[in-house]
């Protein structure tokens, strides 16, 4: 412990704030991860099945969703944070704080995940989809039992990529008072020259990334044949 105190004096001095920042980061990753996971997956599936020649071909729906995804992916996240303040206020009641940050985080992450899911699903052999149609399966069955089942390994892989990029986004959410490890690395580490806080925050984030990657790889191995 004394060694830790020697190397990370400011982390020890601000330990309550530091631990709170870890929780804030985890909170943001977890909840915006779940919400954008559901929204992004739905959007990604919709993009795949409504495309020309697909099982629920619908030009209007496809074009609209495709544009929405492109627009949100083009806006730099730090600007998106400020841009969606009115919407955040409408949904959460306030535009400041960890929970409020879930709105821009979701808007930043879901379109990214949608594209990733879309890329994973279009890899499914069209011949298998055709075989399933020839068997008289419903579109919903084809989505669940063919698209999602056949690309499960790829879906896990892109989910890991998305979660890791989401961690980066949460580090910026400090700009709207959401706290978290990114925030503490700037407010303490950068602004007050407490470099050890920045290093500790980096280590925690790297650990988080490694754990996610490890779990992801473990499941990918289990589902691929």
């Amino acid at each position: 412990m004394s060694l830790f105190t020697t190397f990370f004096p400011n982390v020890v001095a601000n330990h309550a704030q530091f631990i709170a920042a870890i929780w804030q980061t985890l909170y943001m990753v977890l909840f915006s991860g779940i919400i954008s996971g559901v929204l992004g997956a739905a959007l990604g599936i919709a993009l795949v099945v409504t495309e020309k020649g697909q099982i629920l071909e619908n030009r209007g729906v496809y074009q609209t969703l495709d544009k929405i995804v492109n627009i949100f992916r083009s806006i730099p996240f730090i600007i998106l944070l400020a841009l969606v303040v009115p919407l955040t206020r409408l949904i959460v009641g306030t535009a400041v704080g960890t929970t409020a940050a879930l709105v821009p985080l979701t808007l930043g992450c879901a379109p990214f995940y949608a594209r990733q899911i879309q890329n994973a699903l279009v890899e499914v052999d069209p011949g298998i989809i055709e075989a399933a149609q020839a068997m008289g399966l419903t579109p919903l069955d084809i989505i669940w039992r063919v698209y999602l089942k056949e690309s499960i390994g790829e879906i896990i892989r892109v989910s890991v990529v998305t979660l890791i990029s989401l961690i980066s986004l949460t580090a910026m959410a400090g700009a709207v008072g959401a706290g978290g490890l990114g925030d503490i690395a700037i407010t303490l580490g950068y602004n007050q020259f407490e470099n050890d806080v920045t290093i500790a925050a980096t280590i925690i984030i790297l650990l988080l990334v490694f754990i996610i990657q490890f779990i992801g790889d473990f499941f990918v191995k289990r589902v691929t044949h």
């Binding site: 011949g127 055709e130 075989a131 149609q133 020839a134 008289g136 044949h225």
Partner: peptide, 19 residues
């Protein structure tokens, strides 16, 4: 879909599910 169940189909590249 019901009618299709009575018409089986096989393909050049088999189209089995790898998973």
């Amino acid at each position: 879909r019901q009618a299709r169940k009575k018409i089986g189909m096989i393909f050049q590249h088999f189209n089995l599910m790898a998973s």
